[in-house]
Amino acid sequence: MENKVKINSKNLVVIPQGIDKLLSLKKSLTFQLNNVLGATIDNEILNESKGIKDGGTNISGYYAGTFIKSNRKSFFNVKKSSTAVVIELTNENYNQLVIGVDNPRELVDQINNLVAINSK
């Protein structure tokens, strides 16, 4: 089951599915919309080294938890078979989120339009 993403007037909320018990993660991750810099469909990011695992799992074909690479902290919750969406953040606990969602194109378009409107 893919992550749920909810966007309201102020926040972007990610509700991870499937790993919360395994990793004793919070039930949801909330980020200020003003701190979201953009979203991209980027499946090839899963082929790169994810960096050092800081809690989380890396079982074959499934990446979940926190990874640190080149001073950047990433939250992963994505299956290799999913379409990976990368959400870039600033002034948050994470530099980026790499997640699988049900409607990647719609989510990416929605986020990038909000970024365009917020940056005006």
Binding site: G38, I41, E48, K69, E88, Q96, V108
Partner: peptide, 15 residues
């Protein structure tokens, strides 16, 4: 450049 550097500078592929 590193993928992370590109994302940090531009936010997204659209950026």
């Amino acid at each position: 450049l590193l993928r992370g550097s590109l994302y940090a500078a531009f936010g997204s592929k659209l950026g």
